[in-house]
Design a protein around this nucleic acid. Structure first.
Lengths: 337, 337
DNA sequence: TTGAAAGCGCTACCAA
DNA sequence: TTGGTAGCGCTTTCAA
């Protein structure tokens, strides 16, 4: 059926210990024997079982990746970066879409633990950080990505959300907008809160207000919510002339709403997104957005995780990468009004 | 550190066999003992190791998913569907982005095998189907998705590519186009070939030709290639009035090229895509495209795979789902010319 | 009903 | 240099 180390040992007329040493390049084996053994492995099409090796204390070379929804381009791009770097370093990635449900998060956490992953990257919100304690006990390292996580045990990689919010606001201010509104996903998402805080801060500095009524939040069906919220905002009497959407998907919803209402973007309404996923470059008009260095974030997260694996340390806990304003065509100067 | 079955047994004052039976709901254990053991497991926060169980012959409850690139929305959506259904049935998914490189495919195949996945779903092209033989030997079931695979050993789930090509052609013919061109990714992708074949067939039926010069193929950087190829096509003297792009990403490249050349879509150029990913709905103008039932395909692939797992059979080998024309704004009637 | 014990495939330590 | 062997955590007979 499937060749085992015993088969190889028997065929090569050596002990399984010898074969094991050859596999792992350890111990002292004569050139001769080593080659002989390699040949047999080849002939038998032998592949050492990671499972068995893991049981004897070695790692599984598998990492878990939790995201809200892998079909959301932002997380798909994160996953791509993580998988790429992981693979370079010899690790496989198990993806888990949590749909932002705490119950699912918990299930996945247990599951990955049972499967003995070497570490986990968490890119989904968690209402209850306590859930991580069992992992901490078992010293399974965790890196959170694109989300803050207030656990001393977790390293975090994310973009400067506060700075990003400010960038967005500054851009709109520069264009002369004074009546602006904000769209966010559920406020339990820490990054949204920070983005709004940064946005508001910049407005305040310019002596402008951001009344709560102009901050719309929704659930997790981003496209639809973005559209619905924008509808509401734009049908107010003194409607805003610019929108800051906390991610590209929401911004697209806004775009669709504006179109439906017969408003032109950016002439009648300016829209700024966040993330700079592929979506931002293909919309009509293409989205001005705050770019996250997704590739770099994914890579860094993996590197940090694996560093923890090899030499557990209490390195720097939070790594913040710089956001960047990418100006496309969805924002314009305030002409009339 | 981490509780094992021995810890539970000791604490509960029973043998590990008893604990094992309780875990798996097998054997005969008195109500009393069973409850006692559950309590201890709870108290110790015990989680049976999947690794250890797998070693004794049980499954790993892990499936491998090979795709060219998880950041391509089409595959991200496939992955989402697969993960969702897999999770429902108790399986985790390991994703692997092959970048369409055969060498990587091979590496992943061996890797997943070493990790003892229970089955694999392959959504990436493979030049060399022989690579699958070792898996067949070890009777690891495989389902290919969105690609045909000429191995008697593999079940396949895909959309009717030929029919889809025909749908696209028919739509353009209905709109009065007579000079049409095709953009495809690398022709080693079987689905592209089929789509083109279907497209050509429909044209032929209408007494039109599709000269080879009007079939452009490229590499795997879809967006860029689509743009470049379209540039070439549109700068010909007698340029085509409509384009059939074998996927949405290519279509977006075309859209960008057209825009750059100052051509209006659909007035000056009609474009039909394929896949109906989220991208198609957000472009400018939104893309007319041939929809694949991605959700259904992902679900079906998982179901077939797991069916194979539980009762190996030689069920129907190829499952073809129906494509559907989704008309948006990127196609229009042939007015002038 | 319960438990002792033989593996599953591999690693690592200790003798030889 | 080599090989024997004791586990790793769990499942599964087979006796008791």
């Amino acid at each position: 059926m499937k060749a085992t180390i015993y088969d190889v040992a028997r065929e090569a007329g050596v002990s399984i210990a010898a074969v094991s040493q050859v596999i792992n390049g350890k111990g002292k084996i004569s050139e001769e024997r080593r080659n002989e053994i390699f040949l047999v492995m080849e002939r038998l099409n032998y592949r050492p079982s990671v499972i068995a090796a893991a049981l004897t204390g070695k790692k599984t070379f598998t990492l878990g990746l939790l995201v809200p929804d892998i079909s959301n381009p932002f997380f798909a791009e994160i996953a791509h970066a993580v998988e790429d770097q992981g693979h370079k370093l010899g690790y496989s990635i198990v993806i888990c879409s949590t749909h932002n449900e705490d119950e699912r998060v918990e299930r996945y956490l247990t599951l990955l633990q049972q499967k003995s992953v070497d570490g986990m990257i968490i890119g989904t919100g968690m209402d209850n950080v306590e859930l991580l304690n069992p992992l901490a006990d078992k010293s399974i390292p965790i890196v959170s990505i694109a989300r803050e996580m207030s656990s001393p045990y977790v390293q975090t990689v994310h973009v400067g959300d506060f700075a990003g919010g400010k960038l967005a606001a500054q851009h709109l201010l520069d264009l002369g907008h004074t009546r602006v509104a904000v769209l966010a996903e559920h406020l339990k998402v820490s990054s949204s809160r920070e983005r709004i805080r940064g946005f508001r801060e910049a407005l305040t500095c310019a002596d402008l207000e951001l009344p709560e009524a102009l901050v719309k939040t929704g659930g997790f069906d981003l496209l639809r919510d973005g559209k619905r919220q924008t509808m509401e905002l734009l049908q107010q009497v003194n409607r805003p002339t610019a929108l800051f959407c906390c991610n590209d998907l929401l911004a697209i919803g806004s775009l669709q709403a504006a179109k439906e209402l017969g408003l032109r973007v950016p002439e009648d309404l300016s829209i700024v997104g966040f993330d700079n996923t592929i979506l931002a470059s293909v919309t009509d008009p293409p989205l001005t957005t705050i770019a996250q260095p997704i590739e770099a974030m994914g890579k860094l997260a993996v590197d940090l995780l694996i560093a923890q694996l090899t030499h557990p340390s209490d390195a720097k806990l939070t790594h913040i990468l710089e956001p960047e304003l990418v100006v496309r065509k969805s924002t314009g100067t305030m002409a009339r009004k």
